[in-house]
Design a binder for these strands. Sequence first.
DNA 1: TTCACTGCAAATCATTTGCAAGGCC
DNA 2: GGCCTTGCAAATGATTTGCAGTGAA
Lengths: 155, 155
Amino acid sequence: MKTSLKRLHFHNSRSIMKVAKEHLERFGIRPSVQRVAVMHYLLTHRTHPTVDEIYTSLAAEIPTLSRTTIYNTLRILHESGAILMLGIDSANARFDGYTSPHAHFMCASCGKVYDVDLDDTAFVGRNTPRNAARITDAQLYYKGICADCEAKKAN
Amino acid sequence: MKTSLKRLHFHNSRSIMKVAKEHLERFGIRPSVQRVAVMHYLLTHRTHPTVDEIYTSLAAEIPTLSRTTIYNTLRILHESGAILMLGIDSANARFDGYTSPHAHFMCASCGKVYDVDLDDTAFVGRNTPRNAARITDAQLYYKGICADCEAKKAN
DNA sequence: TTCACTGCAAATCATTTGCAAGGCC
DNA sequence: GGCCTTGCAAATGATTTGCAGTGAA
């Protein structure tokens, strides 16, 4: 089930694909054709695409491509730090009755969400988006491992 | 299809429920039993619950409760600003190949996501969560209406 | 040969929609 | 009476899982 790199060269110059390939190798990711295509897509399209937008675009070049592979690839790229994953579109949302400005920290191990106080210097509202006519929401959050889970792991 | 407030008083003191009810009225939301129950739950549980956690807890007190009502209620409470909605758990994620620290702005009207530069004073990493052993992700985002959509609406 | 990667199909899970019935003003 | 709210059931949409085939080391 391998797709030749040749076919992709028809649409994209070798040098640009090379950038994506080297980007993957820098993060220790094996550069399969599908992975290079996803990485290349993200490097050349700064539109913050969804899974489906990436899949639909690339399926034209790689007819056998499957959504599963896109999911797998994006997970690997994200875990390796090669790409960012934005939770800006909220499904699986969580809710908070405390509406004063504060940030959140979610433990990737136990799933617990902690409140984070904001200091004056880093107030969220300071970085106003240039092309925003109105702002209705601002969220700052962190993900990582909480002290409790880190302690448990040490045992 | 109305549930009496009496039943809830069995478990929760009148004064605490009253706080939730008044909270809703302050935001111009009609205080039905279900809405008061959701608001009360969020005011007394600072656990950042999911839709399902809220539903499961309240279904014990209000046997006829439906998930649809929880979804409806949370949407209304959020739109009125009575609660926060956290997109911290990412489904429907969006991806970005540009990994340097920056924020995002998403237009609620056209769905486009714009990059936002961060100034020095508001650098995301400054507010370190107290109980974090390790941080793997930090995201800052805004939602609102972009200048393009605002201009179109004016026509 | 072994192992990692891919892709199909089915299953699962969250959320939305259509609609009917019941209260509130 | 008319509108708003609720709740059921069905539809939709996103993501995950199980599994089998295939190429690369």
